[in-house]
Nucleic acid binder design. Structure first.
Length: 424
RNA sequence: GGAGAGAUGGCCGAGUCGGCUGAAGGCGCACGCCUGCUAAGCGUGUAUGCGUCAAAAGCGCAUCGAGGGUUCGAAUCCCUCUCUCUCCGCCA
């Protein structure tokens, strides 16, 4: 969410910024509604002032045993008028809130122009894709042949787009989770957390999934709860409605959670394998930072996510999302894409974003500077560190042998009880 | 699931019969004084949001879990909801 005052005073700049991502029309009725709201508010406050003054007067008269009947009668009308205006104000507030909630974040100036992922900007590449002497297989084929992945049974249990891990497969997934968490907590200074996997509507609104993207989420039939699509939601909302102090910042949290996405509208895309599931595992990194350091924090966040791939010796590249591909709440996002030889393509495995104060304003996460009056909004950032299922897939594809067995990356072997090879 | 108690500022905590209570008192914090240093002591200040203003000051409005009601006027009375705690039941 953007600030009303800031919007009012910088309308043309914001318009231009939003146009970069093709979202300038979300501003359409803002000015008119906002102006109307202020007019009503001014009138309402005048009347309330009158009423407050009269109430004091009545109290004084009653204390002195004077007759206040006339005054009380007159105030009856004022009170009715106030009630009417309050109703109008409430309606306008709701409208304005809906408008504000639908305006995405303004892209950072360094975000490249562009409509879709074809115009994302390549920042760097790491590692060299291995030259296979044979045609590398896709991870689902390798996994099923080894008996460590079973999509057929998963479909029987639940439906399409679910995975069942077995034996060394489950072990590998668990090893990856522990490996990632250990690095982030022991080397990068993150505090480990296990948040709720179900969250309420307010939390989803705070990070920007709601109100616009409800169809992407799984919702419970009973209470008004949603399955988290990412740990970003519970972890970022951890400090909602709080006033942190300057010396608390920055705060780093990491969380392993399953993630649930309905993947509405993705029919036909990545229908096989671990790439696009309704449930997948992810280790998430979340930062709360001072406004002046958030851009440095984004760079270090990216490095921290990259570390995992480097230790696993998986080739990858980093792209900056162009404005048209940028997520709703984000000011700038780097995607890390891992090399998948079985698909002859780079696939997204992490997304690192700076939301600046956009989520903080929605979720009301503030901080106070030492010796200074008033509060400021923190900046929030998050990144996958990493998507576990996709890392699993990348390992299978990059470390496959001609006979279909899989070497275990050296860094992971201690987490696999010393296992070096997954074979039939 | 059944029975009961509660929700007030950064924290603790007071609020009588509805009327100078945005809210006593304390802690914490900030600044100043005092002191050889530390501790103690003394004084002053210390919520948030919004509107008005170029901005600040000032002024105004709102906020005592949330929403609604009664009233000229609600932290105080009534209703609904949420959350927390205690006891019982159930349960990993």
């Amino acid at each position: 969410m953007l600030e009303i005052k800031f919007l009012r005073q910088n309308l043309s700049e914001i318009h231009a910024g939003l146009a970069k991502r093709g979202a300038e029309s979300t501003l359409d009725s803002f000015s008119e509604t906002e102006k109307k709201r202020r007019e009503i508010l001014a009138r309402l406050e005048t009347l309330r002032h009158e009423r407050n003054a009269a109430s004091e007067e009545i109290a004084r008269m009653k204390k002195n045993k004077e007759d206040a009947e006339d005054k009380i009668l007159a105030m009856r009308q004022t009170s009715a008028d106030i009630k009417d205006l309050e109703k109008s104000l409430g309606e306008l507030d709701e409208q304005l809130q809906a408008i504000l909630m639908a305006i995405p974040n303004v892209p950072h100036p360094s975000v490249p122009e562009g409509k879709d992922d074809s115009e994302n900007r390549l920042e760097k590449s790491w590692g060299t894709p291995k030259n296979f002497e044979f045609l590398p297989k896709a991870h689902w084929e390798l996994g099923e042949n080894l008996g460590i992945l079973d999509f057929e049974r998963a479909a029987r249990i639940t439906g399409a787009r679910f995975a069942l891990y077995l034996g060394a497969g489950s072990r590998l997934e668990r090893a990856l989770i522990n490996f990632m968490l250990d690095i982030h907590t022991e080397e990068h200074g993150y505090t480990e957390t296990i948040p709720p996997f179900l969250v309420n509507r307010k939390a989803m609104t705070g990070t920007g999934q709601l109100p616009k993207f409800e169809s992407d989420l799984f919702h419970l039939d009973g209470p008004d709860y949603f399955l988290i699509p990412t740990a970003e939601v519970p972890v970022t909302n951890m400090h909602s409605d709080e006033i942190l102090s300057e010396e608390d910042l920055p705060l780093y949290y990491t969380a392993y959670t399953p993630c649930f996405r309905s993947e509405a509208g993705s029919y036909g895309k990545d229908t096989r394998g671990l790439i696009r599931l309704h449930q997948f595992n992810k280790v998430e990194l979340v930062k709360f930072s001072l406004p002046e350091t958030s851009w440095d924090e984004l760079e270090s966040l990216l490095k921290q996510a990259e570390t995992i791939l480097q230790r696993l010796e998986l080739p990858y590249r980093v792209v900056t999302l162009c404005a048209g591909d940028l997520g709703f709440s984000s000011a700038k996002t780097y995607d890390i894409e891992v090399w998948m030889p079985g698909q002859d393509a780079y696939r997204e495995i992490s997304s690192c974003s700076n939301f600046e104060d956009y989520q903080a304003r929605r979720a009301n996460i503030r901080f106070k500077r030492k010796g200074k009056k008033g509060t400021e909004l923190v900046h929030t950032l998050n990144g996958s560190g990493l998507a576990v299922g996709r890392t699993f897939a990348a390992i299978l594809e990059n470390y496959q042998n001609p006979d279909g067995s899989i070497r275990i990356p050296e860094a992971l072997q201690p987490y696999m009880g010393g296992m070096k090879l997954i074979e039939k």
